[in-house]
Design a protein around this nucleic acid. Sequence first.
DNA 1: ATCATATGTACGCTATATTGGACATTGATG
DNA 2: CATCAATGTCCAATATAGCGTACATATGAT
Lengths: 261, 261
Amino acid sequence: MDAVQDEAAGKRARGLDRAFEILDFLRQKRQALKPNEIAAQIGAPRSSVYELVNLLLQHGILEFTGGEGRVYLGRKLYFLGAAYENHFDFTRECEATLEQLADETRETAQFCMLDGNRYTVVRMREGARPFRISTDVGQSVPIPWTASGRLLVAHLSDQEILNFIPPQDFRLPNGEWLEPQTFIAEVRQAEREGLFTFNSIVDSFTHCFAVPVRGEEGHAAATLCLVTPRDDGIANRDRYLDCLKKAAAGLEHAPARPKRG
Amino acid sequence: MDAVQDEAAGKRARGLDRAFEILDFLRQKRQALKPNEIAAQIGAPRSSVYELVNLLLQHGILEFTGGEGRVYLGRKLYFLGAAYENHFDFTRECEATLEQLADETRETAQFCMLDGNRYTVVRMREGARPFRISTDVGQSVPIPWTASGRLLVAHLSDQEILNFIPPQDFRLPNGEWLEPQTFIAEVRQAEREGLFTFNSIVDSFTHCFAVPVRGEEGHAAATLCLVTPRDDGIANRDRYLDCLKKAAAGLEHAPARPKRG
DNA sequence: ATCATATGTACGCTATATTGGACATTGATG
DNA sequence: CATCAATGTCCAATATAGCGTACATATGAT
């Protein structure tokens, strides 16, 4: 039920948990690593990591690549992910929506979701500007660092939010501490208004717009975002929000909805 | 190394193995199932399956969907699969190649790979015909049923092939038994000629063409295929093979090659 | 030559994960 | 009402998986 089990030290970890920890770690690193390096960097016993890596290799969940015994995510994961994508068929409409958004605004448009208890950009379309703004797709980012984050946790109670977000994620990239109560207040505001915008926390020159894409349960299953230069964002605020809301409305029947349900 | 470990009865299964068995099973079924159903259909203890399903749900590897406690593959798998696809960046060129092939031949073009010890269609492009031929993408099929199968195992020795392919996969869909030695002879022939074509085993009206897409190690990392009506296939054999070979040559620098290696 | 670090393998101990079976609930059926 | 099948939860027993540790090898620095 809760995610506070690995805090207790000295316990033996379950193979499954360690295995997915390895997979997540490789995803974050986005490169092949030696089992030894993995063990060291995630702080797991070397013998356990070697055993697990070998098991995962046999399943095609990991693959040798990059030489010297380095491993990375395997083909089987691609197949499983493709099956997921095929079942919850949001990709096609999503791609079209982002393209339209980028055309209308000439700004960078993103489709974002929660990845466990963090935030991630699932799809992105760069705007048609001389200097384009882009971010890494597929990287996990602390929820409080992002505009979308305010929307993606809005269905939770205050206490649930505090339990859900890792405490250290309230430490902003510039070192400042974001008071959780401040964050929650912004969440509630975003929930009331059905949108959230701010000057980005992670850099000094962008403004971010986010609106929810509601799933079957009525809460934000995803968000659509625009990332703009601050001047442009503030100048075009109303128009941009209008584009976003229309785009989100168009998607609301696609995401997290089984294909032939 | 070998896949002959779960034959021994009475042994306790490892959680990891069972977990991936569940994931593969859901992928095959391509629909959400109750834990109980999963347990019954894969022949695993119910209590184990319930425990594993709950663990996988916590990790986002499985998700509740379809109601009544049914579960299916989860978002996390999509993220991991996307990371794989991003690393071995074959998708883009592959898509373009299939489109060109379908344009040139007006037949159905496929990009196929091994999924463990079976065969699967990774990408497909339907031809521009009044009656189009298509197959399921992402379904695992016995290697001996397919033209591509002859090419995908050609780098193995005879004995390795026999160890690699599950014995029951030599039973063809019409009930006939394909003698493994016959299959191996076809493999060697395909290896020499760098292609394989035949009237499909799985139906009575198609002809299949397959050529290898060679990876770094020099053996077939994937195949490109055309699936055609028998008449057309035989009439256009030389031209089709020419198109396939050119397309494969164009891909040979893309698949299974790390992006920024 | 000596030491330190990185990498992979082998093995025994023991905490625990897997498992069978008991139990509870629901709904359909005769 | 009695019975049966389907579904999910709980629990104790024990086979074993995870872990610490020792060992083997290679590489590079001092």
